[in-house]
Design a protein around this nucleic acid. Sequence first.
DNA 1: CGCAGCCTTGACCATTATCAACGCTGGTGG
DNA 2: CCACCAGCGTTGATAATGGTCAAGGCTGCG
Lengths: 245, 245
Amino acid sequence: MLALKSLPPDCAGRRRESACGSCGARSLSVCASIPDKDLHRLTDLAEAVTLAPGEPLIREGEPAGHVFNVTSGSIRVFKLLPDGRRQITGFLFAGDFLGLATGEAYAFSAEAIEAATVCRFRRPEYRALIRDCPALEGALLDRATHELAAAQNQMLLLGRKTAMERLCSFLLDLPSHDPARPTPADIIRLPMTRAEIADYLGLTIETVSRVLGKLKTQGVVRLMTMNELRVERPEQLRALADGEA
Amino acid sequence: MLALKSLPPDCAGRRRESACGSCGARSLSVCASIPDKDLHRLTDLAEAVTLAPGEPLIREGEPAGHVFNVTSGSIRVFKLLPDGRRQITGFLFAGDFLGLATGEAYAFSAEAIEAATVCRFRRPEYRALIRDCPALEGALLDRATHELAAAQNQMLLLGRKTAMERLCSFLLDLPSHDPARPTPADIIRLPMTRAEIADYLGLTIETVSRVLGKLKTQGVVRLMTMNELRVERPEQLRALADGEA
DNA sequence: CGCAGCCTTGACCATTATCAACGCTGGTGG
DNA sequence: CCACCAGCGTTGATAATGGTCAAGGCTGCG
């Protein structure tokens, strides 16, 4: 498959910081329960990769040769139609894992949004590690399960919510996905452009802009900068997200 | 998470038919590589359940007490908004697994479409089994990975495809999901109603009906009965599915 | 035979997309 | 240091896809 988001905050305590010598802290958050001897092996296998803004990490259809763990920055995961229409299926941040695929090839593309770093494992070595370290597989299954639940929520959003509901849902979900930046609860950082938000929500740039404008007018949110906003009325945002207004 | 669809046909050879004494053939397709001693334990733990058409199997928000393996019939998996809008996130058939959840509660609902049978495992026993049989976890991760790729395709469909493209994509995907009924390649059985197709594709009943009508008029498909159609021009169907017409 | 549920078809409407113009902002080079 | 330009965002006018509302037909079961 694809991309596995971080586990929710309540799992943070189980994380081992700086576990991966090659690529720095947080990179092994997915492997929280790996014994030390395996950790050392893993460290040898990992390779740190730096990505410039916009730089591709995975191209759909390419042989699936690696798996990755995001260590900093933000990544967009997406699929394209032949005519160029794009659906962003997820945004990844520090601690997120991606690269699982069932067949030979990746079924999606991934690119850096901001400058980002990832920890890269070659697939054969990743597989060998899994054989030796069954706990890793359990952790991955947990993440996949999480990711699948998130995917169902997104299907509900894309199939049945209005533009306003989509944007509000998005604003409510985002903060929980950016563990690297512990911001005040009511401040939301938007590292992505309007075009990326639109492609994530199945809307156009213009609609995103208009709906954001309306939220601003209604005093629900306030734009601090272009990429940062503050939630003024959280309850109203929540009500709007599920069509209760 | 949710529901794990069957592996693709090329894995069928690895299946062990009639492996589960309590609930009949195919039910353990997910556990293809389980040693016999574990299989016997599993058999003791399983419980066959019969569902009438429309009967609920899982209700969103309920404590996640079981996991299931579909043994016959068809199941709809869906989420609801407070005002009743429904998004069907998947259709399950014989051999499909469902019921994984990350937290305490299911994050989705599931109901029988037609009469169906499932094989039910209580969660604690399922967990114990996983501990003893690591291969099971790998099989589940494989399925979750598959399911995640399918979910991304569905997001692309819901976010970026037109009604025509959605319906054509649906018709192309369906056959591969109904392993119990080996039909001629060009015949598609539709066990679900128009309303269910609509709720799966993020459309209304009327739009599904109209688009199907247009496909019929154009000679792309022909309705044999209400629930069965024949693809007359497969290439055109494929072209329409990805917006190349 | 009649009724209920599902499906189809038509007329109309609304949400959102499209097209277009303009404004802001940050970076670059004169 | 300023001015320009490119990229991104906003706003407005118009259009189209698909939704809503309504009526009628088919089918299968009691």
